[in-house]
């Protein structure tokens, strides 16, 4: 059964047509990867599916009151909040402190919970953004190049963590990495 349906999406910026008649029904409980080279319109498509951008033509059908979570193209962290406060901002206090510490440890961020986000490196911020998304309550999870900026060893660790966390959930993720697709996705859309 489809949880999200995109019909005949068209989007252009000036003369440049980035999406031309894209249609797809995303399966509930499945991981769909949108694969393509840089600049082919992957992030634009994801933003349209999330409702952050409007298509020039076509429509997106998303169930009303569907909860969504996302890792955006940028980290979009509140720089003056600690790493754990950034997560609690979306999860509330539902996750006990000890559990949250374990989650930080699982992505190689032990001891960074109480550090302000502004003091973290790019790769650390990316992992905090990922934790924020996967630990929140959602019906659909959107991930835009979620492993960007991670070294191969960390990326491997984080990929395994994410795979475990998103099992049975509806996930749409954008990447240019075939390896990530093979490892995570049930279905691949090539743009």
């Amino acid at each position: 059964m489809g949880i999200l349906k995109a019909e005949n999406i068209r989007k252009q910026f000036g003369e440049n047509v980035v999406l031309n008649g894209f249609s797809h029904e995303f399966k509930e409980g499945g991981v769909t990867a949108i694969l393509g080279k840089s600049g082919c319109g992957k992030s634009t498509l994801l933003n349209i599916l999330m409702g952050l951008q409007s298509p020039d033509e076509g429509s997106v059908q998303l169930p009303e009151n569907a909860k969504i979570a996302a890792v955006f193209q940028e980290n979009r962290l509140c720089e003056n909040l600690t790493a754990s406060a950034n997560i609690r901002l979306v999860t509330g206090k539902k996750i006990p402190r000890e559990t949250l510490s374990k989650e930080f440890g699982a992505v190689g961020l032990s001891g960074s919970e109480n550090k302000p986000a502004r003091t973290l490196s790019g790769g650390m911020k990316r992992r905090v953004a990922l934790l924020r998304a996967v630990l929140s309550e959602y019906d659909i999870l959107f991930l835009d190049e979620p492993f960007k900026g991670l070294d191969s060893e960390t990326k491997d660790e984080v990929l395994h963590y994410v795979k475990e966390k998103i099992r049975g959930k509806t996930v749409i993720f954008v990447t240019h990495d075939e390896g990530e697709c093979k490892f995570l996705a049930d279905e691949v859309i090539r743009l």
């Binding site: 952050l52 979570a69 996302a70 955006f72 940028e74 979009r76 901002l89 979306v90 929140s136």
Partner: peptide
């Protein structure tokens, strides 16, 4: 963009 993030979550 943080405003947008707040809306999404």
């Amino acid at each position: 963009k943080l405003k947008e993030m707040s809306r999404v979550f």
